[in-house]
């Protein structure tokens, strides 16, 4: 059997991506709780410490704020850290470091330095972990300029996206759905340059677009199969990147099918599904007028010359309404 035909599990895809990037660049380091000696509570990272040594792969205290901020500081000083926050529910303890330090540094420093940081974290339910070890906190971070959010649905894509995340110059939250770790695929040869921020159509259809990420993509594919049996042709769109979101692909698919359902594992209020609906709404809304004014996706600048133009104002509201209603 050739190497390209063997099976790749989601769990091994993650480990291989970290392994290959540690091998490719001595500035890459990896740390977190129980990741080195024990190899991770989800058995994703065994053997990496023995291969690369304690200086580059190490266990940390159970201190999510310290390890996130240490990753930030190490990136400022020239390294390319990967950290594991065991369960994404623990990310809330690291908020200041992720939101105020890492995400804003590129902008705030006037582009002196970006933060090439990857935070890996396990999300999602369905395996009996209860309310504080099963959340998918994508929407908590969706409104944070300067952060990228990646959420893969398959093994090959997880490897492709994690390698791209490690090579990206910006802070990336990389979410791994626990129910996917044991899933496998026929190994694909990874070629070409992956740029974070692109969705993909995993099934073409003409009657409706189903949008999801992570485990939801497999659910949508199965639903699409069932729908085809009753004569409904469903297109399935795997977002892959929640921030930035692939507006163009969402809009082009919706333009084609004129029907769109978003499937999110998370509370309906304030969820990322609402963001997808808003993006889709910005095309083809057939005479209905429904739109948004907000600040641009950047941290708030200090200089009065910049800040004064940053916020919505009576003038921008007036101009926006006048323009739309003049049509």
């Amino acid at each position: 059997m050739s190497a390209s035909q063997d099976e790749l599990s989601f769990r091994n895809a993650i480990r291989e991506a970290i392994d290959e990037e540690l091998a490719a660049d001595s500035d890459v380091i990896f740390f977190g709780e129980d990741v080195a000696e024990a190899g991770g509570v989800f058995a994703v990272t065994p053997g990496l410490r023995d291969k690369y040594g304690d200086e580059r792969v190490f266990d940390t205290p159970i201190s999510e704020l310290a390890l996130s901020s240490a990753a930030f500081g190490s990136a400022v000083a020239g390294l390319r850290p990967i950290v594991e926050i065991m369960f994404a529910d623990f990310l809330f303890l690291a908020m200041d470091s992720l939101v105020n330090q890492s995400a804003k540094y590129w902008y705030l420093s006037n582009e002196q330095k970006s933060i090439p940081l990857v935070v890996r974290s396990a999300v999602g339910g369905g395996i009996g972990f209860g309310p504080i070890h099963s959340q998918v906190p994508i929407s908590w971070f969706l409104g944070v300029p300067g952060l990228k959010i990646i959420a893969p649905s398959t093994a090959n894509d997880a490897k492709r996206l994690l390698k791209a995340a490690i090579r990206d110059e910006n802070p990336v939250l990389f979410f791994e759905h626990k129910a996917l770790y044991a899933t496998t695929e026929v190994r694909e040869e990874l070629t070409g340059q992956e740029i974070l921020g692109k969705a993909r159509i995993v099934r073409e259809g003409s009657d409706i677009t189903l949008v999801s990420c992570m485990k939801g993509v497999a659910d949508c594919l199965e639903a699409a199969r069932l729908l085809s049996e009753i004569g409904i042709s469903a297109e399935v769109l795997d977002l892959r990147s929640l921030r930035p979101m692939d507006n163009e692909m969402i809009q082009s698919s919706f333009s084609k099918t004129k029907s769109l359902l978003v499937v999110e594992e998370g509370p309906i209020t304030g969820g990322w599904a609402g963001e997808v609906i808003s993006i889709a709404n910005e095309v083809n809304n057939d005479g209905m007028k429904l739109w948004r004014i907000a600040t641009e996706d950047r941290p708030i600048p200090f200089s009065p010359a910049l800040e004064n133009e940053f916020y919505p104002s009576a003038t921008t509201i007036f101009e926006s309404v006048r323009e739309r209603h003049a049509r």
């Binding site: 110059e169 910006n170 340059q193 950047r298 910049l306």
Partner: peptide
Amino acid sequence: SPGLKKLGSEFMELKRTGGGG
């Protein structure tokens, strides 16, 4: 004063080779 053209981007552009290969 900084002009509005200096607003800049939330992200640094990709400098290195992407992670596909």
